[in-house]
């Protein structure tokens, strides 16, 4: 454990832990679009930039992405100094030029006082900020179905060859954790479509309710050693079954005791 100063407050942190985790633990609102605790930090969105200095740096300070900066002893961190806010405003300005139609980015930029971009707006731009959360989560879960393809201006997130990815199981983790809700999917009744691939939802054998896709359930039972029957009943019906069997045991106990 080492002592660091964040916004004038002395806090304890584990050495080597990333600064953003410490800041988030203190409930200080530092924006970050590409951060997810489930995956390794990447430092793609640049919004979590903070100012750091030390007492023996003779008044010098530097700007680092807090999600990638490990805690050092005696670090002095400023999360909302004027210069940091200025950097964030510039980044928001650029984001607004590239993704003018994203409500999430508009809201974040508004919080920092950027209502309109000062650059030329990219008319045919989409809402993908190329943060890589979707691909990193997909890799962390062990599917490797999508990845960032192309370079420079043409870089996008896509499955191999832009065809329905054979490794995708339709777990929806990429779409649900996308910071700008860019990834499209449809969930209608027993059918789910994502990345142009159609999936059959696994319906509960008792009530017909759906939770996950058949392919995801098969993946889990195959790789994680979970009986497939567990997935065939929905959670509400499972609860009913549990209460029924627990009630039966309790009734026997009651009879035996009386």
């Amino acid at each position: 454990m080492v002592n660091i100063t964040i916004n004038g407050k002395i806090v304890q942190a584990e050495e080597g832990e990333m600064l953003l985790s410490v800041i988030r633990r203190l409930k200080i609102d530092v924006p970050a679009l590409c951060h997810h605790e489930a995956v390794e930090p990447l430092g793609a969105c640049r919004l979590c930039m903070v100012e750091i200095t030390k007492e023996d740096w003779n008044g010098w300070s530097k700007f680092v992405t807090s999600c990638l900066y490990p805690v050092e002893p005696d670090l002095i961190v400023l999360t909302h100094s004027d210069q940091v806010n200025e950097i964030r405003r510039t980044i928001m300005d650029l984001y607004l030029a590239r993704h003018p139609n994203s409500p999430e980015i508009q809201k974040l930029a508004e919080e920092y006082g950027v209502l309109k971009t000062s650059y030329e707006v990219q008319v045919d731009g989409d809402n993908c900020i190329l943060c890589g959360i979707c691909t990193r989560i997909c890799d962390a879960m062990g599917f490797h179905a999508i990845s960032l393809v192309g370079r420079g201006h043409g870089k996008t997130v896509a499955p191999p060859l832009d065809e329905p990815p054979p490794d995708c199981t339709g777990c929806l983790s990429c779409a649900l954790n996308c910071p700008t809700n860019f990834i499209e999917f449809s969930d209608q009744g027993n059918k789910r479509t994502i990345w142009k691939k159609d999936f059959e939802m696994l319906a509960c054998v008792k009530c017909g309710a759906t939770t996950i896709t058949r392919e995801f359930a098969e993946f889990l039972s195959r790789n994680r050693d979970i009986p497939f029957e567990y997935f065939e009943t929905c959670d509400a019906c499972h609860r009913k079954e549990t209460s029924l069997s627990m009630g039966r045991i309790a009734a026997w106990t009651k009879e035996a005791q009386s």
Binding site: C171, S173, N177, T211, F216, Y230, D235, R239, E241, T242
Partner: peptide, 18 residues
């Protein structure tokens, strides 16, 4: 913070408690 909301645990729990 880590949860990605894939619903695997909800579907897997045989007692329906997730």
């Amino acid at each position: 913070e880590i949860c990605v909301k894939c619903m695997a645990c909800v579907a897997a729990c045989p007692f329906g408690c997730a």
